[in-house]
Each structure stands twice: as structure tokens, then as C-alpha cells.
Design a protein around this nucleic acid. Structure first.
Lengths: 241, 241
DNA sequence: AGAAAACATGACTGAACAGTCAAAGTATTT
DNA sequence: AAATACTTTGACTGTTCAGTCATGTTTTCT
């Protein structure tokens, strides 16, 4: 005996909002305010978007992006399913939102480094920009551990569905590394060789190390590890003869 | 007007196989022959298992393990859905089957290398075992490009569902690398430092380079790239002063 | 204050999916 | 050749999921 009435819509009282078409809905980004001001509503909006994003992030780190459903997310966040779709168009948009705070500083760091390299054409310390770049990135990564871990975890794999924003970032990182490596090579900072290879080596090494560190292998989390990484990249593992 | 009769089971003629319980079904591995000989049946079995596995591999490389459904696989392979379940218990078992030919030679190469290192205690060329190891692995990887690519693509991420066998292999590789790095370090082959770090660096660099190469970036596929990878790992990218 | 607009809710829909099974087909044995 | 054991098939079931929408609630505007 299924109780039908339980599943019927709540009894109508007054239709206060008759058939508004979907034009007013904020489409992609949750922080995009559709109409008003900086009052209570805007506050709630931010709070709820963050609630959803951080619930999603937690689940995705546990189970992987694809295994997490919208229902999982709303249950974890403690909101209704319909609310999710007020803040994000779909899972891909959500991932875009989650990744944004990581993407921005990376873009900036890269741009800054490239400019610095262009400026300091043949100054004595052409190495300084690289050092700043590394420091900035390290700072960002540890500022945004969970997001970084999500990126590292889902970095490879098909550029489809919810993983598309991650593939985009991965591509940007590969390309940036190659640009910087090519520059270093052209200026004679590094041994001659294919800069695509050295870029891939550096990215692969740094990302894998970061991934293992962020996974919680505590021995890998000391600042000394970053120093050692740089030492190995610069001078290799071989004991000098 | 749904045509009911269309969806009814085909009309019974003679039940030639009355209610056999599921005990006779070959459970996990498709190559495990349930009864008879080495005749035509065994041949068909192998053929079909390979058909399913390679169809699945193709799809998984395109879309990622999780996005591929059993229906996708059987359509691609051109067999009925029920047949899939005669050969594999589920997607995880299938992935296990796909990975097996890669896992075996890797296990062997590692075991061989460790033994060689243990034997050649303080001989002059303690480096030779590492060189053979690298050569063996390179050979295996390029022998099994697609499987390797699947491994690299799905290597990280949650240890759950169909990805479990891949996580297992990833873990084995990380651990093996660490063992070999620790050995090299203890024997004074490498500069002092945390061997966990150097192991992670080597694995990360090699895997990322292999991944990019297998993705089809043709400039990265020459044998010179492997040489350059080793050079960078041994001596770094820095131009000697 | 009241009106209007944005926001929240969760039952509901239709599609997609993993896994099953009775019936029909094919190799192997006797 | 007939019986037997293994194999194939695809319609079917029950479940899970993304996305919708009518109704109810809160904030903002006037």
C-alpha cells in the first residue's frame, strides 16, 4: 500500500510565482550575482556555493570525479537537489568552480615569469625568475591542498564530461613548462637537448612528488623535499665522480 | 500501443538444459578452461575473451575506464551482453585481465633486478642491473602500448571499482622504485638524500614522459628520448659550470 | 507595511545501466 | 547419430541517476 498523497506536490495555496521562464537564472558561475547588491542574499549565495563545492571536493577526492553523483553531493552538503542546479549547470561547471582558485594564481605566476625572463634579457641572474616561479607555485599548491590533489588525481585521462576543466589546466601546465624550458635552453641555462623532454621530466617529477606528498606520506611533506627535488632536477641523482 | 509479444521470451520447444545452477561457470579468468581439451572450443574462448578485452581497451582509452559501460563493450565487440558475463565477472575482472600481460613482465624484471643487485654485492659494475632493468621495462612498455597507456591514464585516483587493479599495479611500481632507489643509495651509487624522494622523481618523470609519448606526440617517440631521460635523471638539466 | 523577485525544496520523469535467465545454438563425447 | 556438456543470445528486471518544476520560503524593493 503506497501512500499516494505522500508523493503528491504539496497542496496549492497561492501561486506567487507563475511560470517564470528560465532566463533569470545565473548560468555558469555561482559568484555571478544575477541582480541585486552586497547584502544578505549575496552572503548566503557564497556560503551555499562553497558548501556545495567543498562537499563535492571531499567526495571526489575519496571516490574520483566520475563516481560522485549530484545526489551524493547534495546529501553531503545537506541541501535539496534543485538547489544544486541554481548554483551550477552541471558537474563540469562545478569542477570549473572548484578549480578556479587554483588556476588563477598559476596563470599569473606563469605570466609574471615569462615577462621577467623577457625583461632581464641578459642580466647576470636569469635564474631568479625561475626561482620565484617555483616559490609562487609551491605556495599556491600548499595553500590549496585539496584542489591541487584533485587536479593531480584526475590530471590524466579522457578530456570529457566533468574532467574537461582539469584536462584544460593540465594542458596549460604542460605548455607553460615547455615554454619556460625552451627559453632556458635557448639562453644556455640548461644542457642542450629537447626542451620538450626536459619539460615533461620536470612536470612529471614535480607532480608525482606533490601527489604523493599530498596523499599524506608525511616523510614527503617537509620543506627539505622541495629542496631535494630541485637539486635532483638541476644536478641529477648520480654521485659526482 | 506496445507490442507485448515482441518482448516475450521465444516460444519454448524443448528445455534441453533445465535449471543448471551457476556452479559450472568459469569465474574470474577467461583463459581458465572449465572442462575439456585443447580443441576448437578452447580456441573460441581465447578469441572471444581477446575480442572483448581489446574492444574494452579501445573504448577505455577513448573515454576513461568509468565512462565505459558493459553495453558499450559488447556492442563494440559485437557479442551479446550475456556473453560478457561468461568471460568476466564484472568490469574490474576485465581490467584485471587487460592488465595481466603488463604486470607479469614488470614483476619479473623487478625480481630479476633485485636478485642481480643482491648477488653482485660489490662487483665493479653495480650499475649493470639497473641498466638491464630499464631496458626490460622499456621493451615491455612499447610491446604493450595500449595497456601501458591505460595504466598511465588511470594510475592515480581512487582505489575503487574497476580501477582497483590499476591502483594495485601503481602501488607495486612505487614500492619497487623505492626499494631500488634505497639500494642504490645504500651502496653509494647516488648522492645522499631521501631515496623516497628520488624514487618518486624517477617514477614521475618516466611515467609522464611515457604517457606523453604514447599519447602520440611524435617528437617524443624516438629512442633518443629514453637516452635523454636517463641523462637528465643521472646528471640533471643544469649546464655544467 | 505590502509587493515583487530571488531562492529553496523534494517528488517526479525518462533514460541508462548492471546483471539475469530461459531458450536456442554449437562443440564434444559416447 | 544421438546424447551431453558447454556456449550464445537478447529481452527483461530493478536500480540509479541527471535534470525539472510546482509549491513554499526568504530577502529585497517600494
Amino acid at each position: 500500500m503506497t501512500e499516494q498523497s505522500k508523493y503528491l506536490p504539496r497542496p496549492p495555496k497561492k501561486s506567487r510565482r507563475p511560470a517564470v521562464k528560465a532566463e533569470a537564472i545565473p548560468s555558469v558561475v555561482p559568484t555571478e550575482r544575477p541582480g541585486p547588491e552586497g547584502g544578505k542574499r549575496a552572503e548566503n549565495r557564497r556560503t551555499k556555493a562553497n558548501l556545495l563545492a567543498s562537499a563535492a571536493l571531499r567526495l571526489m577526492l575519496e571516490r574520483g570525479i566520475e563516481a560522485v553523483t549530484i545526489d551524493d553531493i547534495v546529501v553531503q552538503a545537506g541541501v535539496a537537489k534543485g538547489s544544486f542546479y541554481r548554483y551550477f549547470d552541471d558537474k563540469e561547471a562545478l569542477v570549473r568552480g572548484i578549480l578556479a582558485p587554483l588556476e588563477e594564481p598559476l596563470h599569473e605566476a606563469f605570466t609574471r615569469c615569462r615577462r621577467a625572463l623577457a625583461d632581464a634579457d641578459r642580466g647576470p641572474s636569469l635564474v631568479a625568475p625561475y626561482a620565484s616561479f617555483a616559490a609562487e607555485i609551491a605556495h599556491t599548491i600548499f595553500e590549496l591542498e585539496s584542489v591541487t590533489r584533485l587536479y593531480l588525481q584526475e590530471r590524466r585521462g579522457a578530456n570529457a564530461g566533468a574532467r574537461r576543466p582539469i584536462a584544460r589546466l593540465a594542458r596549460f601546465i604542460d605548455d607553460s613548462a615547455e615554454t619556460l624550458a625552451a627559453f632556458a635552453n635557448a639562453r644556455g641555462l640548461t644542457r642542450p637537448g629537447d626542451s620538450q623532454v626536459s619539460a615533461a621530466v620536470v612536470v612529471g617529477a614535480a607532480e608525482h612528488l606533490a601527489y604523493r606528498a599530498l596523499l599524506g606520506e608525511t616523510q614527503l611533506r617537509s620543506p627539505a623535499v622541495a629542496v631535494e627535488l630541485i637539486a635532483i632536477i638541476l644536478d641529477g641523482v648520480r654521485l659526482s665522480e
